[in-house]
């Protein structure tokens, strides 16, 4: 089974966050399985479950996300889904 990862994005709401972040994923040819997004007191939070077929990509991906973080003043994290399964499911 392909590995899946959880991408979370938090930051002050503005135009184009989803477009910018999903754009990066599309460029890395990563499919999005699930996406949820809310605005909480002006704060944009988004979580996505994405395909992570090639773990060796993670370096490039982290680098690109770092640029996006600076550019749009966001906090982005990406973690393999297993860790959430381990912590929250028996």
């Amino acid at each position: 089974m392909n590995k899946r990862a959880v991408v979370t994005v938090v930051g002050k709401d503005k135009v184009g966050i989803i477009a910018r972040v999903t754009g990066v994923l599309a460029k890395h040819n990563m499919n999005i399985h699930d996406i949820s997004q809310t605005i909480l007191q002006d704060y944009f939070t988004m979580m996505m479950i994405v395909d992570m077929a090639d773990q060796n990509r993670i370096d490039q991906l982290l680098e690109t996300f770092e640029l996006v973080e600076k550019e749009m003043n966001l906090t982005i994290s990406i973690q393999l889904e297993d860790v959430f399964q381990a912590m929250h499911r028996i």
Binding site: V6, D34, M47, S77, Q79, V83, F84, Q85, H88
Partner: peptide
């Protein structure tokens, strides 16, 4: 079972904060 939103948040809070 899919991981819930608040569970994801909990893990991230534990690591980042």
């Amino acid at each position: 079972m899919a991981i819930a939103y608040n569970e994801i948040q909990e893990t991230i809070r534990m690591v980042q904060m």
